[in-house]
Amino acid sequence: MDPIAVRLLRARGIEVPVGDHQEVEDHWQSLLAGRQGVDEAMLGDFDIPLVFPAQGHDRDA
């Protein structure tokens, strides 16, 4: 199991019980998938970018 999620929580002072590890990891993976979807949405699903484009940072730059 990728322990990144559990390590992240430990860094915040939260010890994740072993019984929760897999579900926390599953949620972490779903967050990564959602994150990728949002990144793609910024270019794909919308007519305008999510953020008003700063010069040099808009999608056509």
């Binding site: 929580l9 994740v16 019980p17 926390v24």
Partner: peptide, 10 residues
């Protein structure tokens, strides 16, 4: 508890 653990991740 599990939901709150997940909420610490983003």
């Amino acid at each position: 508890r599990l939901l709150l653990e997940c909420g610490e991740l983003p």
